[in-house]
């Protein structure tokens, strides 16, 4: 059983939904990230989504763009990100870590080399925002070889036949993008989220996470109603940005915020 499977099984047994906070690795400093990951776990994070900074984050709103700019300002590379996961794993062998980023850093590193290094570092899954399944065959082969879960996004615009194709390729969990837009936007339509999740469940038994636009206990509860996990990104990064000159305060501010979300994810159904 992989770490992701074990975590979702455990959550299901206790009637809870997964809380998946997102932070950009290296934001605001490289040294902040590993302590922040531990602090998030202590505050209730079930899975950690760790952003690999990229110079041209086309799918991200201003909040996560700025996080990437801060991380790149002192040169956080994909190698640094893997080193952070390796360091995190020295103390935490159970919390799944899923990387989220864009294809080019992986492309330049080389698919085989990246997959091997990520698996060795203790990464469990990878979301490659700009890699649809049609272009993913070569990378998926390497992921399969190294037991890395390719986590695919499904969008409000995705028609049923594509949902089926994507679900057939996905491992770990499926990530439903709650709205048309970039990360950090608002206006969740819970009815349409529920409808789409039902469609997804017709094609897969994998857990379904919902992300984009979840920023407080109400939106988390609304999104969690039909899902197995909620991803909270920009709202976490906001706490990092607000305290970017003081690492200790970042840890407490993010932890406090995550604790406020926990009730939204207990016994929702």
């Amino acid at each position: 059983m992989t770490r992701l499977e074990a975590r979702f099984a455990q959550l299901r047994a206790s009637g809870r939904k997964a809380l998946i906070p997102y932070v950009t690795a290296g934001d605001p400093q490289k040294e902040t990230t590993v302590p922040l990951m531990h602090a998030m776990v202590a505050a209730g994070a079930d899975i950690i989504e760790l952003g690999v900074p990229f110079s041209d984050p086309m799918a991200d709103g201003p909040m996560i763009q700025r996080a990437a700019e801060r991380a790149l300002a002192h040169g956080t590379s994909i190698h640094d990100v893997l080193a952070m996961v390796r360091e995190f794993r020295q103390q935490d062998g159970v919390t799944p870590v899923v990387l989220m980023g864009y294809l080019n850093p992986i492309e330049v590193m080389g698919y085989e080399r990246f997959a091997r290094a990520a698996a060795q570092a203790g990464v469990d899954g990878v979301i490659t925002v700009d890699l649809p399944p049609e272009e993913a065959a070569d990378l998926l082969r390497e992921f399969a070889h190294h037991q890395l879960a390719p986590v695919f996004l499904i969008a409000p615009t995705t028609p049923p036949d594509r949902v089926q194709t994507i679900c057939a390729q996905a491992r770990g969990f499926v990530y439903y993008v709650s709205m048309k837009g970039v990360t950090g936007a608002s206006h969740l339509d819970y009815a349409s989220i529920a409808e789409k999740i039902q469609l997804i469940r017709r094609y897969t038994d994998l857990p379904v996470g919902v992300g984009f636009g979840i920023k407080d206990v109400q939106t988390a509860a609304g999104a969690a109603a039909n899902a197995d996990a909620v991803v909270v990104g920009s709202a976490v990064v906001q706490r990092v940005e607000d305290n970017k000159d003081d690492s200790a305060r970042i840890l407490t501010a993010v932890a406090e915020f995550l604790r406020t979300l926990a009730p939204a994810l207990k016994n929702v159904n």
Binding site: M58, A59, L103, V129, D130, L131, P132, E134, E135, F152, L153, I154, A155, P156, T157, T158, P159, R162, I166, V177, K180, G181
Partner: peptide
């Protein structure tokens, strides 16, 4: 070439 975009843009 190809199509390397987020899923939301694939259908459009």
């Amino acid at each position: 070439g190809g199509r390397f975009v987020g899923e939301t843009l694939m259908a459009p």
